[in-house]
Measured scan of single mutants.
Amino acid sequence: MQGVVKVNSALNMRSGPGSNYGVIGTLRNNDKVEIIKEVDGWYEIRFNGKVGYASKSYITIVN
């Protein structure tokens, strides 16, 4: 499943599904990501070869 990031500035990509996990990357508005699965309001995603987590509130699913 594919998604597009929708933010005003930047979205942190984290090592786990929560804001208490470390930041491993930064996503920008309109970045395209691969959604692997949903975990407690977060998406596990793949972006630029990295796998991490981002809040699903800021990612819109596209077909």
Rank of each mutant, 00 (worst) to 15 (best):
Met1Cys: 05
Met1Gln: 14
Met1Glu: 13
Met1Lys: 08
Met1Ile: 13
Met1Phe: 12
Gln2Leu: 12
Gly3Trp: 02
Gly3Gln: 03
Gly3Cys: 03
Gly3His: 03
Gly3Pro: 02
Val4Glu: 09
Val4Ile: 15
Val4Leu: 10
Val4Gln: 09
Val4Gly: 02
Val5Cys: 04
Lys6Asp: 07
Lys6Gly: 08
Lys6Gln: 14
Lys6Cys: 07
Val7Lys: 10
Val7Ala: 11
Val7Gly: 13
Asn8Arg: 08
Asn8His: 14
Ser9Arg: 09
Ser9His: 15
Ala10Arg: 09
Ala10His: 14
Ala10Val: 13
Leu11Gln: 10
Leu11Ser: 07
Leu11Asn: 04
Asn12Asp: 15
Asn12Gln: 10
Asn12Glu: 10
Met13Gln: 03
Met13Lys: 01
Met13Asn: 01
Ser15Cys: 05
Ser15Val: 09
Ser15His: 09
Ser15Leu: 10
Gly16Asn: 03
Gly16Val: 01
Gly16His: 03
Pro17Trp: 01
Pro17Tyr: 01
Pro17Lys: 02
Gly18Phe: 01
Gly18Thr: 02
Gly18Arg: 02
Gly18Met: 02
Ser19Phe: 14
Asn20Ser: 11
Asn20Tyr: 12
Tyr21Arg: 03
Tyr21Val: 02
Tyr21Leu: 03
Tyr21Lys: 03
Tyr21Ile: 02
Tyr21Ala: 05
Gly22Met: 10
Gly22Leu: 14
Gly22Phe: 10
Val23Ala: 07
Val23His: 06
Val23Met: 05
Ile24Met: 10
Ile24Trp: 02
Ile24His: 03
Gly25Phe: 07
Gly25Leu: 11
Gly25Ile: 08
Gly25Pro: 00
Gly25Cys: 04
Thr26Glu: 15
Thr26Arg: 09
Thr26Met: 09
Thr26His: 14
Thr26Ile: 14
Leu27Ser: 02
Leu27Trp: 01
Arg28Val: 15
Asn29Met: 08
Asn29Pro: 08
Asn29Leu: 08
Asn29Glu: 11
Asn30Trp: 08
Asn30Ile: 03
Asn30His: 14
Asn30Pro: 03
Asp31Asn: 06
Asp31His: 05
Lys32Cys: 05
Lys32Leu: 14
Lys32Phe: 12
Lys32Tyr: 15
Lys32Val: 15
Val33Asp: 00
Val33Leu: 06
Val33Cys: 04
Glu34Cys: 04
Glu34Val: 04
Glu34Asp: 11
Ile35Tyr: 03
Ile35Gln: 01
Ile35Leu: 06
Ile35Glu: 00
Ile35Cys: 03
Ile36His: 06
Lys37Gly: 10
Lys37Arg: 08
Glu38Met: 06
Glu38Gln: 08
Glu38Ile: 09
Glu38Ser: 07
Val39Asp: 07
Val39Gln: 10
Val39Thr: 09
Asp40Lys: 08
Asp40Tyr: 07
Asp40Ala: 07
Gly41Cys: 05
Gly41Gln: 10
Gly41Asn: 08
Gly41Pro: 07
Tyr43Gly: 00
Tyr43Ala: 03
Tyr43His: 02
Tyr43Ser: 01
Glu44Met: 05
Glu44Thr: 04
Glu44His: 06
Glu44Val: 05
Ile45Cys: 04
Ile45Gln: 00
Ile45Pro: 00
Arg46Cys: 05
Arg46Asp: 15
Arg46Leu: 15
Arg46Glu: 15
Arg46Ser: 15
Arg46Val: 15
Phe47Thr: 08
Phe47Asn: 05
Phe47Ala: 10
Asn48Lys: 14
Asn48Trp: 11
Asn48Gln: 14
Gly49Arg: 08
Gly49Asn: 12
Lys50Ala: 13
Lys50Tyr: 09
Lys50Gln: 14
Lys50Pro: 02
Lys50Ser: 12
Val51Arg: 06
Val51Asp: 11
Val51Trp: 09
Val51Tyr: 12
Gly52Pro: 00
Gly52Asn: 01
Gly52His: 01
Gly52Gln: 01
Tyr53Asn: 01
Tyr53Thr: 00
Ala54Ser: 06
Ala54Cys: 05
Ala54Thr: 13
Ala54Ile: 11
Ser55Asn: 15
Ser55Asp: 15
Lys56Leu: 08
Lys56Gly: 08
Ser57Asp: 15
Ser57Ile: 11
Ser57Met: 11
Ser57Asn: 15
Ser57His: 13
Tyr58Asn: 14
Ile59Phe: 05
Ile59Asn: 01
Ile59His: 00
Ile59Lys: 00
Thr60Met: 14
Thr60Ile: 12
Ile61His: 08
Ile61Pro: 12
Ile61Gln: 07
Asn63Ile: 11
Asn63Ser: 13
Asn63His: 09
